[in-house]
Structure formats: structure tokens, C-alpha cells
Amino acid sequence: MQKIQIFLAVSLTFLSSIQVRADPQNPKEQLNQSLIFAAPPPPTDIGEPGKRTEAGSRGCSQDTNKPLTSSQKRLTALVPIYSNPELVFGTTIAEYPSFLFYVPYSSDFAYGEFVLEDEAENQAIYKISLTGTPGVVSLRLPSKAAPLEIGKRYRWYLNVYCNKDNQIIADVEGYLKREQLNPALKTQLEKATPSQRVTLYRTNGIWYDALSAASELRRTNSQDTSWRALLQAVGLNDFATEPKVECCNLEN
């Protein structure tokens, strides 16, 4: 499994003091300066590390044992992974963050299920109707759901099931924690351009918000390099050119 290109900051307090700099005019220079994602120190009290990429397809009465794309890419969560031991973890400041995944399965073959579990092991389970095209999907927690609590850690799962027999085909899982947005960073974000906001999230180690902002920039500005740089920083460069597909509403 690819290793994350990462440095661990001394603390989130230190990270939050970093000031944003104007983006370079040269796209190549901008990309080079964006290759490091300043991830916070990982939690030390997580028993099970998670899984960023499916181990192998199964289910459907063994009709298939591989994804349905010629590239052979597997179900993958677009999140950082720490080494020694491997741990799938990222932070957010949002009440209702978005989770991004590469899904190689289409709606005529499979459907999905997203699960969010709090520290008390209470679960919110959402069914996902996939599209007919494999690609990157964004799953945003619905506003009717309970907002994430500051300082709390959550565990998420994405399971894909076969339409034919409702057996699981593939799954990934990991953790996120909602952090407090400090006043200085809040002021910077309010004044920043969309590209600068990605840099602020990146240099402060706020993964989910950084990737969501970069995904929106990718949609509105094809010349912006934030999306590719972020994925490359965490060892997911192979997914940088995969199309984003308009999917999926989370339904209880």
C-alpha cells in the first residue's frame, strides 16, 4: 500500500498558527508547494486501524472477483493513511462534512451503504444508489442528521453490496474527528480566495475540508492544481484524473 507523504506537526495548536501565502502564479510552482499535507499527530488509542482500499471483491455468488473497470482500481476512500501502524484518519471542522470515495461499481451491478458511528457505537446507516458510471463520489451528511460534535471522534464505513444476492462485495472504513475552529484561522478563511482556503485547510491538517474545497475548485477551474496535489500528497495520485460522478444522496 502506498505510503503517505506526510510530516507530523508537533501539535494542532502549532499548525493553526501557520499563515496562508498567496498562491504562486506558476501552476507547476503551486503544485510543488502543495505536495505536503500537514497532517496532525494520529490518535494513539484506536484499536482497529481501518481500511483505505478494499482487500478484494467478493459476493454476487462469486460471479466476479474484481472491479468493473478496465483500470482494475478498487474501492478506495480518498483519505490519508498513517504508517506504523497503518491508520485511516482525518479531521474536519464541519458539522456536516463530505466523504469522497472512488467507486468502481455501477448501479446495474451494485448498491452502497454508508455508516457513521459515534464513540458510544450509535450508528446512522444510509443507503446509496450508485450511478451507471464508476468514478469519484461525494457523500455529504444530510442536514437532518445530528451534526458532528466538536472534539468527538467518529468511525465511518462504506459497504458495497451486489444487487443479485445482497452480499457484500467490498468495503472500506476509517475515522474522523471534528476539531474546534480557532478564531485566527476563521478570520483567515473568511478573507481567503477558494484556492487560498484549500491551502489553509492543507497547512492546518484539516483533510476533509481541504479535499471538499479542492473538489469544488476542480469543478469550477480546470487549471487549478489543488485536487491533484492533495491526492498526490497522501499517495492517491492514481485517482487524480478519475471523473467525479454526480452521486449520491444519503438516505436513511
Rank of each mutant, 00 (worst) to 15 (best):
M1I: 00
M1S: 10
Q2G: 06
K3V: 01
F7L: 14
A9T: 12
L12E: 03
L12P: 03
L15E: 12
L15W: 00
V20K: 09
V20A: 10
R21W: 11
P27T: 08
K28W: 04
E29C: 04
Q30T: 13
I36W: 11
A38K: 00
P41L: 15
P42C: 15
G47N: 04
E48K: 04
R52A: 09
T53A: 03
S57R: 06
R58Q: 15
C60P: 01
S61P: 01
S61R: 12
Q62L: 13
D63N: 14
D63E: 15
P67M: 03
P67W: 02
Q72T: 04
Q72R: 13
K73L: 15
L75F: 06
T76S: 12
S83K: 14
L87E: 07
L87M: 12
V88M: 08
V88K: 02
V88D: 00
V88P: 02
F89I: 05
F89Q: 03
F89N: 06
T91C: 11
Y96F: 15
S98W: 07
S98D: 07
L100I: 08
F101H: 09
Y102I: 03
V103D: 09
Y105W: 12
S106A: 13
S106T: 12
Y111K: 08
G112N: 05
G112E: 01
L116D: 02
E117P: 07
D118Y: 06
E119M: 01
E119P: 01
N122L: 09
A124P: 00
I125G: 01
K127L: 03
G132W: 04
G132E: 06
T133I: 09
G135I: 00
V136L: 10
V137W: 00
L139N: 00
L139V: 03
S143Q: 11
A146N: 06
P147M: 07
L148Q: 01
L148C: 03
E149S: 13
G151I: 09
K152N: 09
R153N: 04
W156H: 02
Y161S: 03
C162E: 02
I169N: 08
D171I: 05
D171E: 07
V172H: 09
V172D: 02
V172N: 00
L176N: 02
P183R: 13
P183E: 12
K186P: 00
Q188V: 12
S195H: 10
R197K: 15
V198L: 05
T199G: 00
T199W: 02
T199Q: 10
L200W: 02
Y201I: 01
T203P: 00
T203R: 12
G205F: 00
I206V: 14
Y208W: 15
D209T: 09
A210Q: 05
S212L: 02
A213R: 10
E216R: 12
E216M: 15
L217I: 10
L217V: 13
T220Y: 12
N221A: 11
N221W: 11
Q223R: 13
D224H: 10
T225F: 03
W227I: 00
R228D: 08
R228A: 11
A229V: 11
L231C: 06
Q232D: 07
A233T: 08
G235Y: 12
G235F: 14
L236Y: 07
D238Q: 11
F239W: 11
F239T: 06
F239Q: 09
E246V: 15
C248I: 03
N249Q: 13
E251L: 15
N252R: 10
